[in-house]
Design a protein around this nucleic acid. Sequence first.
DNA 1: GCTGCTTTTGACAACGTTGTCAACCGGTAC
DNA 2: GTACCGGTTGACAACGTTGTCAAAAGCAGC
Lengths: 345, 345
Amino acid sequence: MTDLETARRGMRPTMRHVADLAGVSLKTVSRVINGEQGVTAAVEVKVMTAARQLNYRHDVAASSLRRTGRTTASIGIVLEDVGNPFSSALNRAIENAASARGMLVFAGSSDEDPQRQQHLVNAFSGRHVDGMILVPAGTDHEYLVAEQRNGTPIVFVDRPTSSLDVDSVVSDNTAGAFAGVTHLVQAGHRRIGFLGDLESIVTAEQRYLGYVEALGVAGLNLDERLVRRGLRSSDAAAPALHDLLRETDPPTAIFTSQNLVTIGAIRALHACGLEGSIALVGFDEVTLADLLKPGITVVAQDPLQLGHVAAELLFARIDGDRSAFRQIVVPTTLITRGSGEIRPR
Amino acid sequence: MTDLETARRGMRPTMRHVADLAGVSLKTVSRVINGEQGVTAAVEVKVMTAARQLNYRHDVAASSLRRTGRTTASIGIVLEDVGNPFSSALNRAIENAASARGMLVFAGSSDEDPQRQQHLVNAFSGRHVDGMILVPAGTDHEYLVAEQRNGTPIVFVDRPTSSLDVDSVVSDNTAGAFAGVTHLVQAGHRRIGFLGDLESIVTAEQRYLGYVEALGVAGLNLDERLVRRGLRSSDAAAPALHDLLRETDPPTAIFTSQNLVTIGAIRALHACGLEGSIALVGFDEVTLADLLKPGITVVAQDPLQLGHVAAELLFARIDGDRSAFRQIVVPTTLITRGSGEIRPR
DNA sequence: GCTGCTTTTGACAACGTTGTCAACCGGTAC
DNA sequence: GTACCGGTTGACAACGTTGTCAAAAGCAGC
């Protein structure tokens, strides 16, 4: 069977096939494919022609197996959920940076499950990714130390940690929440409700802290009855808000600490016809928030910037940067659109 | 240097190290790691202990290199943009199916650039993915034939093709657009504008076709002056709509054939205060569309279902399904919320 | 103890590639 | 003619793993 026939029958052509067709040694093909010096122009043409004819595709796995350093031109990222807007914006920003370097991205969703995250990290590790970017789930990151020791750099994004020496890129969560709640205080509110995400998520905790601090600075008491946490979806947020409004002394303003929670709160307010009388500030941007009546005032994060910076940090490490681990803080922006400027009756 | 020390010094432990520590042969370690039959319980424990002690991580690349069949438990997907809501929902649905099978997902964005798509396909191919799912960009898919011949199954999602024998999963674009436009006709509209995506995108063309058919069935003339196509972003849609409304005999209703275009149109209508007087039906769901005043009537796709079905098709092929190529059509749903029910003055 | 059988184990080659090093080639200097 | 040089090419081993096959070990029956 000739090489051309082999190529047609479901067997991928290898350098061996190309070499035979071009009448040179396998090593010479390797040199041409890798663009190495010291190959006569005539030989190069012969090899290239043969490679094209057989539709040769370089085998990155075999190549990286043999190569010293063992790089695979791929990175792995663990997001909360590749399907949600914040995560997918991160994903896109990281992909942009990666593709500019000719690298490929494995992406997976942890759904906040530390076990799923560890499973993904192991899977990435087994495929020899050159680095990983994680939106860390849970708090026990001990197993990542082994990865780092193996020479795989890791960058945390969106959430910091104290339990691991690692680079991280985070939004200024506490300051952002502080600014959002203070904005409500300045509109005259004294009873401000808080709807938050799982307490196990560091950022959720930080945003809650910003809320508490803002109340403290304003001389307001923290009333536990106005706080509902552990909300994971917009469907969970709506009943929580209805619940808050049934309190004997209900809040006149609401601060929601996350995307989906904000959407649930908006739905609930609209359902009661209260969207014009109860103030609302949400953490994180929401699509079309500007077109609602009233527009939704938010503390916006910059996921594209977060992802971009995380990728740059990672690539610096991959390129051999050995400097001390850094935490980079990306600022948030308060965007006023109406809902946060409603005054108490 | 002992094996334990080696493990700490940036060199990944291999089966060789585990074998030496456990006092067995390399092949026995391989058997234990792969859960093969015919290993004494005592030996298995020794190997497992040594592996854990060294923090051994199985090398998928080397394993797949040697294995017959050469599977890598990974698939590649090319989306339009991993950051947009439709693509990221697809991504998530595919990831769910993949992770249920213990497979990893490489994801990349083509941005509708056929070259970028080909580049991604080549990169996936070089990493020996077991299959690929593409939202195809462009029309020339000739180079994919080589991949198929190499034994890599390919599934098209969201867009069909006639130029390649391949499985595909698509929304019922023409019927969906037909239903949306007919809905406007039934509300009494005779002049219905069309704002569409790039004509090179098959689905955009099909939706335009649905628009044209609906007009035909209703006995309405197709007026080219009411059609604006080639819109790629919400920022491009707004001026196009303003443009339409400046026509001498402007439309009383608008059909937008894509997500971002719908958002741009909503912005433009709100900016002119016309959201209550000009009817609007959009193709594809838009977050918070139900809370706008008026709510936005849409022809909703089911990206999760599209992704799920595409993944199942792909896995069937990976598992050896040799039946004829299929095209599966996922229906769309008209969701009435107000904007599509506005009657002409 | 021996035979014959099954079960467990290991030696070796191979997957497709690159690093190392030696062989070769043409040309120049003696 | 020989010696030497620089540049090009190829033979071989190696990366970490699994497929193949043969050797060793265990065990039953005599």
